[in-house]
Write a protein that binds this DNA or RNA. Structure first.
Lengths: 210, 210
DNA sequence: GTCTATACTTTGATAGAC
DNA sequence: GTCTATCAAAGTATAGAC
């Protein structure tokens, strides 16, 4: 009932006992925060789900806010790395746009819990932590906006303000935690292709693929 | 700094003193809840924003949860009424779909605060209140799904699973509180037309409007 | 309707033994 | 690393005077 193989297992295949516990705590926290919201999930809730005492958890993070920050930072950093890798490739803008959408969608929709946190609970961070996360988010926006700009210059885009197009796409993806389940017949990768279809036909002019 | 003419003023133009206060409380609550989230906004925050004592507020609602419920219920009921009115019209499905999207978008994006509540804080309601709101939400989904089904039968839709199409649209609209500001050059009605363009070209096959 | 005063609960976090 | 014990702060809500 409790274990949930998660995509976060990058790197080594073997984990020390301490690392295992750490991962268990972080994954459980992500799950609970996603289910009931960060604010309404107490440290007590988390400790009970783990079978530990509240105070024991503070061995693994400094504060509840610190815990949230670590979850978000880790997740966004990994996404950003992949995306900026993609953007560095020498591809025609159409292909880059399509690849961007497939990657973004499959990565985010593929980790529902952490995407939930990113969408719903980012503002629970205060001060510098919040600013740092917002700065990272801007890098996504800049990435896709750059691609769309190219398409616009080339006269391939409909007459839609860039921010409207950008956030229409983000909206489609960021809303997935509210309804999408990966075991419902559509894989994250397929979902990526579907969103690509919708979005590209939606904002691009020129010859449509039949 | 505090007054904000709001679209909720349906019905009479004159309000009694008591109704004025009630409206002031509800609008302020909606604004604060939208800004900082329902859970993280305390009754004290609300009372201070209004210049009243905490206890005085309980004259206007039974509990914090009751307050949230009233805000949501009022908002959704109004939206539903307009939408089901529209759906009852005898229109060809293409036109109905387009009108649906324009109406849905302009109504929701036009009241950012309450849409925020609906998207972010619905789950803060428990038990029957929550169930009642979810039931209302299903009526939206049913409405647009019905229209899309017609289009599919007529062979006018791309090969996209219905739920994916439906929630792609809801995602675009429900995400607007995160970025859209009505004084940023695009009115809610224009935004509705833009989303109509994106979505219709995105999911429909057949002759495109140039 | 609005106030003062207060009851009761839950929360995040710390101290210190083992 | 994990436990027991405890704290101060903040939360919702109520009682009763005016």
């Amino acid at each position: 009932m409790r274990e949930k193989t998660n995509d976060r297992s990058v790197g080594r295949m073997t984990l020390s006992k301490g690392e295992k516990r750490q991962r268990q705590i972080y994954d459980t926290a992500a799950r609970l925060f996603a289910q009931r919201g960060y604010s309404r999930t107490s440290i007590r809730d988390l400790s009970e789900a783990l079978g530990l005492q509240k105070s024991s958890l503070y061995h693994y993070f400094e504060s509840k806010e610190d815990l949230l920050h670590r979850l978000l930072d880790q997740f966004m950093e990994e996404a950003l790395q992949r995306i900026e890798e993609l953007c560095a490739l020498a591809l025609p803008p159409q292909e880059k746009l399509a690849a961007f959408m497939r990657l973004y969608t499959s990565f985010y929709a593929g980790d529902r819990d952490r995407l939930s946190l990113l969408v719903n609970d980012l503002d629970c961070l205060g001060g510098e932590l919040h600013a740092a996360m917002v700065a990272k988010q801007r890098r996504y926006v800049a990435a896709i906006q750059g691609i769309l700009n190219e398409m616009r210059q080339a006269g391939l885009m409909r007459d839609i303000p860039l921010p409207v197009a950008v956030f229409a796409f983000f909206g489609m993806v960021h809303y997935t935690p509210k309804w999408y389940q990966r075991d419902g017949g559509v894989s994250p990768e397929e979902l990526g292709r579907l969103f690509e279809t919708i979005f590209c036909h939606g904002i691009l002019t020129g010859k449509e693929q039949p």
